[in-house]
Amino acid sequence: MSDIADKVKKIVVEHLGVEESKVTPEASFIDDLGADSLDTVELVMAFEEAFSVEIPEDAAEKIATVKDAIDYIEKQKAA
């Protein structure tokens, strides 16, 4: 797993208070990890802070799973 994936997973565990084993790439923040709409806003902010990236609102709305987040951040970092 990449450093980015590791860090994303850690942030998700910390913010949503879920077991690490549940944070699989396919896991949906809302459907599988118990987040509500405010939790997802906070998660995106935490990603922005941790990776020094800007995630505009329209992009943030499309980040529904752990993999979505990892892919988006990896793409930003590669650019």
Partner: peptide, 10 residues
């Protein structure tokens, strides 16, 4: 300001 927690108000 954009980093203010969504939980600030509640």
């Amino acid at each position: 300001a954009r980093r203010l927690s969504p939980f600030f108000i509640p």
